[in-house]
Design a protein around this nucleic acid. Sequence first.
DNA 1: CGATTTTGACCAGCGC
DNA 2: GCGCTGGTCAAAATCG
Length: 323
Amino acid sequence: MSDHGFRDFYYHGGAFNNIDHDQQSYGGETDHMYRVSSSSIDPSYMSFTDCLHSTSMDYGSLEKAFGLSPTSSEVFSSVEGGNRTMMKQHVGADELGGNTGEVTATLNSSVSSSSSEAGCEEDSDKSKKDGQPKGSDDGGESSKKGNKAKMKGEKKQREPRFAFVTKSEVDQLEDGYRWRKYGQKAVKNSPYPRSYYRCTTQKCTVKKRVERSFQDPSTVITTYEGQHNHPLPTTLRGSAAGLFPPSMFPPSMLTPSPLGRPSFPHELLMQMPNYHHQMNNQAPAGSMFAENFSPFHQYVHQHQPDYGLLQDMVPSTFLKHEP
DNA sequence: CGATTTTGACCAGCGC
DNA sequence: GCGCTGGTCAAAATCG
């Protein structure tokens, strides 16, 4: 995976109050980035999972969802250069306070089949999994190669992707779905490996990649690809629903997408540190907030132009300065 | 014992 | 054409 594929979507453990949308095209492929800063969230009062699970969102919906946030919105910058356009929306910054964490998310949609990054992924997956059963009699080697050959000649449209950068000590964040790990690779220029997961639900082709940022080892980058075609596992769904009533979300987030894709946002929300903490109990109480989540840290680190804004929003002690 | 993870091998795409 | 890299497979190991 290439670094340019990532866009940032920050969740700061609270109601979204700072949303960036970044869109970029790469030879016919379009990435969508939603960087959302938020704060002051009451974990018992949010349910991205439940409300979003019942609906699929396309990127337009996502934009609307965040752009039309009840506390929105103010466009504070707009930059265009080359084939890249950037728009930022400042949403309800006055809600800042008591920041607990952050999540960065990326939308990466495909509008053509020219991408090499994941262009044949789904295709190969299907051809291998569905077209040819495992453990065929002709031997592992030949079957493998036969499958690979089968996917040749036809490139498949790349699934839209949606990436999050989450501050967490654990790599595998609970998002309500069950995943099976099918691979792990060393990442170039990073001491941390990248893990590949596939949704264990039958006929669900959703995949995700999880890797730890080498720049900031406290952050985990999770990239979702594809759309779940099934409900959340009931047990998790039930608990999630209890935690996160949908009432807090703007109507656009609850509106089924005309395109029927993707369902990422709920996963974004399921990965929110508070939720994860509650679900897994993998960190001492408070540690996630006090240590793992330094609000706006990465945001500021990576996006200097926003510093002025952030300064207005965040105590200076939260801000990380370049040396 | 079934489900999941680990891990080395394989393959395709891309850049040089 | 070759090497590098990302992504996937699948057998073996491990887990619950």
